[in-house]
């Protein structure tokens, strides 16, 4: 009985820790500006006003920061394009490499693994200048492609690592059975292996998407206009505008978080099993 009670208190503390910061910001995003200054926890007179700015519902363009806020929908589209491309590139390049590492014994596989692990340990700031110059020399600055390529390279090693672990949990006999049943090696891959590993692929894909959605440094470096700027950069631009009320920043933050949050809720089980299982397995 006592044990039960302490378990629930423990759980409550964990829930508060995990949610309170975000909950507060969400609450603030519905507050009129004056309520924030009163250090409230809950909006007394909830308003959608802070969000309206982003979608020009009442078109008060005189508001501070309105020019940037109006770019929000476009920035979200940019982030979607970049994130989706990064996800697809991760899945194709990652699953091919991981399949080879998990299934086909070959000379140099250890070397490749170390290469991937080494790539993962290179910090972004260490390559930002050469990357910037590289993108500039190819004329890729302020394009989606530059951000897509950089995001893909820093998510790919992790993707390969996770997928390799995940693929190794699939019994080899399944593909053998498919071969005996009349599939070519490629047929066994497409008809049996890929469907069976879909949960892992989805987990890794979502992971790459969210990582790309949240990445900031390269997005900040490579993009200069709304033609390619993703939401994270826009959100920080916005916050650096003087005199933008925090309630409006909070609303923007909530808008940025919304999609990754929904994705992580929807695919929660897959992500937890896919990532956890293959890192430790």
């Amino acid at each position: 009985m006592w044990r039960r009670a302490s378990l629930y208190i423990y759980a409550l503390v964990a829930v508060v820790y995990l949610t309170l910061p975000f909950a507060w910001v969400t609450a603030v995003s519905f507050m009129p500006e004056r309520e924030v200054t009163q250090q409230r926890w809950w909006p007394e007179e909830p308003t959608m006003g802070n969000y309206n700015l982003y979608f020009q519902v009442d078109g008060r363009s005189a508001d501070v920061g309105a020019a940037i806020a109006r770019q929000f929908p476009r920035a979200i589209v940019n982030s979607l394009i970049i994130g989706t491309a990064v996800m697809l590139l991760n899945l194709t390049c990652g699953s091919l490499a991981a399949y080879a590492l998990a299934r086909l014994p070959f000379r140099g596989n250890l070397l490749l693994l170390l290469f991937y692990l080494g790539s993962r340990s290179v910090p972004g700031v260490a390559i930002m200048i050469p990357m910037y110059l590289l993108m500039r020399s190819y004329g890729l600055l302020d394009t989606h492609l530059s951000v897509i390529l950089s995001h893909t390279t820093f998510t790919l090693p992790f993707t390969i690592w996770i997928l390799k672990g995940y693929f190794q949990t699939v019994p080899l006999d399944l593909e053998r059975a498919a071969r005996v049943d009349g599939c070519t090696p490629l047929g066994a891959l497409v008809r049996v292996f890929l469907p069976v590993t879909t949960p892992g692929l989805v987990a890794v894909g979502i992971f790459a998407f969210i990582a790309s959605w949240g990445e900031f440094l390269f997005a900040l470096l490579f993009t200069t206009t709304i033609a390619s700027r993703p939401v994270t950069v826009l959100a920080s631009d916005f916050a650096q505008e003087l005199q933008v009320p925090f309630t409006v920043i909070a609303a923007g933050g909530v808008l940025v978080i919304l999609l990754p949050l929904v994705l992580s809720f929807l695919f929660q089980r897959l992500i937890i099993q896919g990532i956890g299982g293959s890192v430790t397995g």
Binding site: T19, P21, F22, E215, T232, A235, G253, P260, L261, S264
Partner: peptide, 16 residues
């Protein structure tokens, strides 16, 4: 709820 902090982009986390 565990995944909430993870889903929040670093820069938005900073702003928050």
């Amino acid at each position: 709820l565990l995944l909430i902090p993870w889903a929040i982009p670093g820069v938005v986390n900073g702003l928050m």
